[in-house]
Nucleic acid binder design. Structure first.
Lengths: 224, 224
DNA sequence: ACAAAAGTGTTGAGAGTACACCCATGC
DNA sequence: GCATGGGTGTACTCTCAACACTTTTGT
């Protein structure tokens, strides 16, 4: 077990799920494959990990190749290591997920895919590989994280109204929240502060808020 | 990016941390390396993932090779993918952790290690690779899991007293608990039931409990 | 009878939940 | 002045934390 060449090695890919909210719906970015296997099927964007870059870097690279988004909140989800996941051979996939707000994103299709498109997490197309399972797991984890952390702000622009924030939670959990209780709780956390007002709508203008700096820096025990 | 041979591939190992409680202390099983790199240094047991077995199977195999323990609660912790983790070359490590009670375990040293030994998590030796970081992360995750799940029973024999259970929590969190509150909370969860009494001690005998069957089957969303 | 661990309830504080109306603006 | 979404408070319930003495056994 001590020489790197003693055994035939599995291949390693990274897949990156990018979530965002568009039109009051939780969306994930998928690509249409141009080459076998699963040619013409939709799949999670990803690619092989290179030998000279960390997994996190590989994930950031894949993300930026597909979307131009850089330095986004990126979390390792799980490593999928079943034997028959990929018809080409033994492939281990390290799955990452990212949260983004649409304003930052300019989507482009890379050379290996014919199309890039946002899909509702609640209306997914038929997917290649075991990607349906990976997405289901990611949704579970996303919900779980939102219960005990503040990652939600990644889905919103820098300044947002409390109604926007509540809508984001409702979309992800697919469940209505009480307006007064939601506001009471969020404000009591002390993680957002006022920064202006909306304008130009045919109703009372809303206060704008932004997350305070220290809460934008995600704790990441692993890094370094 | 679509041929498995397009890029030079990183190697993949699985490392398995086995935790248990011995003498009122949280212990982890480490091995002393017999060959470079880090010859003579202590490290987390592990080895290369074979091409014909899943990562979970590889972890179970490594675990059983070192300890004879089979079919234990095994959870994927994290995948460590930095570039310079291993002086031999590019190695990605998928870390797993397991909880065990000592009665099940017969430790043996495999051919690649000169010694196998339990270490207190609070008094670790100098470790090879980035294994100190991996252990620190595992401890954090172990504590975290115990707050919202019932994995703790894996550290105990089938029948145990509430005092035993409380002691396990106190050791892992390194913090005293209130006896009445602890019992109230555990019993209210409805996950354990009485099954006998202790005997032969010079004090009042304690009730024995065991976890109910459905709570011994860990939910594992990923499998399958 | 005494040493040693087992077992047992109450109270107060804080968090979560349910619930309905007035406010500010644009048109 | 009316339509639209923004904004606000109270009462009840439940959970969590603090806290000390009695019981049962072996020796």
């Amino acid at each position: 077990m001590d020489k790197l060449t003693d055994y035939k090695q599995p291949s390693v890919t990274v897949d990156v799920m990018i979530f965002t909210i568009i039109n009051s719906d939780l969306k994930v970015l998928l690509v249409k494959r141009k080459i076998p296997p699963f040619e013409g099927k939709w799949a999670i964007p990803g690619g092989f990990a290179r030998i000279d870059e960390s997994l996190e870097d590989a994930a950031q690279r894949e993300l930026s190749e597909e979307t131009n988004v850089k330095n986004i909140y990126l979390e390792q989800l799980y490593t999928f290591g079943e034997v028959n996941r990929d018809p080409r051979g033994r492939v281990i996939t390290v799955a990452y997920f990212a949260l983004a707000n649409l304003r930052d994103m300019q989507i482009k299709a890379s050379s290996d895919v014919s199309e890039v498109k946002w899909f509702s997490m609640y209306k997914l197309p038929e997917l290649g590989f075991d990607h349906a399972k990976i997405l289901a797991y990611a949704l579970q984890r996303l919900r779980y994280k939102l219960e005990y952390s503040t990652v939600c702000f990644q889905l919103l622009p820098k300044k947002f109204t409390l109604t926007d924030l509540q809508a984001a939670y409702e979309i992800i959990f697919n469940k209505k929240q009480d307006k007064r209780n939601f506001r009471k709780k969020i404000l009591s956390l002390g993680i957002i502060s006022e920064s202006g007002r909306t304008e130009g709508k045919a109703h009372r203008p809303a206060k704008l808020y932004s997350f305070t700096r220290k809460h934008m820096i995600m704790e990441n025990f692993i890094k370094g």
